[in-house]
Design a protein around this nucleic acid. Structure first.
Lengths: 116, 116
DNA sequence: AGGAAACATATCTTGTTGGTTATATGCCTG
DNA sequence: CAGGCATATAACCAACAAGATATGTTTCCT
């Protein structure tokens, strides 16, 4: 199963997240947004779902998808040491952010790959 | 040419950056670090170089590679809206970070920092 | 100058993946 | 209950990317 970084490697997948970033949307709207067949979108949604980055809610025949930001923290964490490179002595602030990020939802969902 | 996100999609490439994250290293050491043929590593280095994420310095027959963190800011920027999702009402801080990131290497002084 | 070390580039092979076109499933409506 | 939406899944294909091996190219050493 794909890991967060690989999932985001695909532009369409980032695009989907962007479309979902301000609230849930049905698949149909996503299909409009990306210019691409519906099955293709569903496939991307599957990948995102399996990576825990979106979740869906059923509304009659439609599925409303929304972002699950949790896994993105892995990216944020990986980024930390490099962020320090372009913003020197930001460690305190960073630590602060880190603490704020302590836990938004219990939901769980870990994946391997924790580099640093 | 590959974009930052795609470049980072590949685990070996992240690994390389991690190995370089605390200073420059010759290719040979990277080859040790990843367990992989030297040409494979050189290929990854090429991709990273073309994406502006590393640069090299010549030392006799060796090439010393080091990180160029700049392009990573694109990731950081993309992350911003989602970061807000797990760290509610952090916008002020974020804006602050954003401004700090405005320039390559400030060295020490102050920049227009009117946050607070 | 000859040879080895360190790295880059070329070429080839193979697996994965992102897309497409069917087709199945579930739910609502008339 | 038949038909039409909305979405998921299946099967297939073309493109690509990540390895490996083989071969340059440059620089150092003796």
């Amino acid at each position: 199963m794909m890991m967060v970084f690989e999932v985001l490697g695909e532009p369409s997948r980032r695009h989907i997240l962007d479309l979902l970033s301000d609230g849930e949307r049905p698949v149909g709207e996503l299909v409009e947004g990306l210019q691409m067949s519906q099955p293709a979108v569903s496939k991307h949604l599957r990948v995102l779902r399996e990576a825990g980055m979106v979740e869906s809610r059923i509304d009659a025949q439609r599925r409303l998808y929304r972002v699950r930001p949790d896994p993105l923290r892995e990216i944020d964490d990986w980024l930390a040491p490099y962020r320090r490179m372009w913003a020197p002595s930001l460690d305190a602030l960073e630590a602060h952010l880190g603490r704020m990020s302590a836990e938004p939802i219990p939901a769980a969902g870990e994946r391997g790959d924790r580099t640093r």
